[in-house]
């Protein structure tokens, strides 16, 4: 049991930022992202403590829970994807100058809003591939689609995102 705790503690440290980021880029506020992320890790722990070492890929497992949690969030409450103006994320690098930080915040803000305008599948693929550096094959396995389809969707999603960013 202690070893399970230690294992899950390591998994938590490894994936908390990624899962939070994944969720944050798909919901409308920091609070909602925190709420969903906490649900993801709670469910993850329940499954991990029940199945133990049989969970072969904890990352894919947590991302799958996160995807479903976000879908449930929108489906259950009938929420539309409204992006609040003050939805600014915490930035890790606190050593940036005020100017650089402002530029970065502006760029991140535009990108964040733009990503949220994409379809859910395009959001997932772009976040997982370009932010989390997940290989196409792993994304294909996670989403239950052929790798070729994921490549096409990634290309289209990137094109859509480019158009949205240019329009903003």
């Amino acid at each position: 049991m202690d070893s399970l705790n230690e294992q899950f503690s390591q998994i938590y440290d490894q994936y908390i930022d990624k899962i939070y980021r994944f969720v944050f880029l798909k919901v409308d506020s920091q609070e909602t992202a925190q709420d969903i992320t906490s649900k993801v890790f709670t469910k993850g722990w329940e499954a991990f403590s029940a199945q133990g070492s049989t969970v072969k890929n904890p990352g894919a497992f947590l991302y799958q829970i996160a995807r479903n949690a976000v879908i449930d969030h929108y489906r259950g409450k009938g929420r539309s994807k409204v992006v609040p103006v003050d939805a600014s994320p915490d930035l890790a690098d606190q050593n940036l100058s005020a100017h650089d930080k402002a530029v970065l915040n502006a760029d991140i803000g535009i990108l964040t809003k733009s990503i949220k305008k994409l379809s859910k599948e395009h959001q997932d693929i772009i976040i997982l591939h370009y932010l989390e550096d997940m290989p196409i094959d792993d994304i294909a396995q996670l989403m239950g689609r052929p790798a070729g389809t994921i490549r096409v969707m990634l290309h289209r999603g990137l094109k859509d995102l480019k158009d949205i960013v240019q329009e903003s």
């Binding site: 980021r21 925190q34 992320t37 915490d90 964040t112």
Partner: peptide
């Protein structure tokens, strides 16, 4: 897009959540 990697959760919240779970 790679700049979005800088998005991270509040560290206090993350630690609290971990300790709760």
């Amino acid at each position: 897009l790679s700049q979005l990697k800088e998005i991270k959760p509040n560290q206090e919240w993350a630690s609290l959540l971990k300790s709760q779970i």
